[in-house]
Amino acid sequence: MSLNMVIAGFGGQGILFAGKIVAYSGLIDGKEISWLPSYGPEMRGGTANCSICISDKAIGSPLVTTPNVFIAMNGPSFDKFINSVEPGGIVIVESSLINKKVERDDVKVSYVPASALAEENGLKGLANIILIGKLFKEFGFSSEEALYKAVEKCVPAKKAHLIEANKKALELGMNS
């Protein structure tokens, strides 16, 4: 099944990076993928979002308007995208930062207090990766091997010491 995903939150939460890990996982599995960020002034301190597609076929529009997966990392993004999710889609809510509940009953929702979990486990700043771990459990967008390889690929060489922490965050999310 194709992944048509939107991940959205504040600039600085690692929205684009998290999206990149998902995209790279698909690439490593030999799938067609696309990754499209929002850009411009809104990226500087405002909201950031990113569309990711993984498919067996060539990707048409890379702009996801009716996602089958939506990860919300802040309130404004939750409000903006929640009604666009495809019926039957998966919604993952960062519940440390969003205290709203999803009112729709046609989507599958997980509430993950990712920031709190990160803080408790010495993984500050990796709430985004915890949520990707959770998504992996809910919607196997790639092989597990590809996911871990994607982390190694996406963490820049200068920050190689953070690879293990990222992997730990993935596991934490999978088990949350």
Partner: peptide, 10 residues
């Protein structure tokens, strides 16, 4: 265009 410039693909 801005979409093609900003997006990532293999």
């Amino acid at each position: 265009d801005g979409m093609l410039g900003q997006m990532m693909e293999p």
